[in-house]
Design a protein around this nucleic acid. Structure first.
Lengths: 168, 168
DNA sequence: TCCGCAACTTGACACCGTGTCAAGTTGACA
DNA sequence: TGTCAACTTGACACGGTGTCAAGTTGCGGA
């Protein structure tokens, strides 16, 4: 909080006047980032897809390319999850939104009759949602040194393999 | 540290006599857990596999079933990664060991001529390693409410899909 | 039997970060 | 000119980690 106030050119206390707690500040930051980066527009693109497979690919691309934009604040928010209830809820909410995007793609694939046998809608959504986690992005991009393009390509491929029946 | 000392029935200072820092304690705990839970024996099982595919499956099973055993201390260690250099290194080392297990399976699959075209040894290892992360286990088992068996089965399937060429 | 030592205890303190409080300053606007 | 909101300075509480000093206890060897 001190550092942020310093960067903002105001006193620490002025910062507390605007954001009562650290969690409040981080949550407000994500919301602001969502507006500035137009997350809705990005994620909406996949909604226009003509097929389930296409929708899945577009969604992976949209979210996967959004992660780096919010990664800084996401880190901070994730780090304080086990100490702060409010932060936990805020992060859970955001992840829920991603999950709904996954579910929409899964549903379309199911309607196309292409959902892998043995998976139901929830299981498939869980898989895609997990595949698309910020942690996986971190691990591949940072720990493994992958490029963003490689990350997107591999994630797209894996997502499709995971839940779409291959064309015989 | 207070709580742990209390649980151990010694004073906080006695605890500091044994473990100079919190990171030291957690690291020693993982090491001790590794001994008690015989991590080597578990992971070694996959080494006897006759094929790459079998080795991959056995490794996923061994590590996947080991995660719940160490999850508590793993949480604590992961949580202090960005504040403590020593903790970061300790965790990185452990993950490196897992990575080597992944790599061994990948190598065997490659030698069997079954590595998916377009993947090299490093890329394939990165994928399996990421798939097997503790975070993914957490998300599927805790956030999604999966059973351990379901987690193992799905991870095995995905690992194979990710890097093994399907039989013609 | 007693010395010495290692393990431990109690109780204090420093430091850092979050969050709170009180009192004073500044500047815009009615 | 008075008021009010935004801000400042400076203090403090609290919890957690880590440190320090001085005292206690019990065991094994001379």
């Amino acid at each position: 909080m001190s550092d942020i106030a310093k960067q903002a050119g105001i006193s620490r206390q002025a910062l507390y006047l605007h954001f009562p707690t650290r969690a409040d500040l981080l949550i407000a930051t994500t919301r602001h980032l969502d507006e500035v980066k137009e997350v809705d527009t990005r994620l909406a693109a996949s909604r226009a897809a003509g097929s389930g497979r296409e929708r899945l690919a577009l969604f992976v691309e949209a979210w996967g390319n959004y992660i780096p934009e919010i990664h800084g604040v996401a880190c901070a928010l994730m780090a304080m999850q086990d100490s702060d209830e409010e932060a936990r809820n805020a992060w859970a909410n955001r992840m829920q939104a991603v999950r709904e995007g996954c579910e929409a793609a899964v549903e379309m694939i199911e309607n196309d009759g292409l959902l892998v046998p043995g998976l139901n809608r929830k299981t498939a959504t869980d898989l895609i949602w997990t595949l698309l986690s910020v942690r996986n992005w971190e691990q591949l991009r940072q720990d493994c040194g992958w490029s963003q393009d490689d990350y997107i390509a591999a994630t797209k491929r894996l997502a499709e393999l995971a839940i779409v029946t291959p064309e015989h």
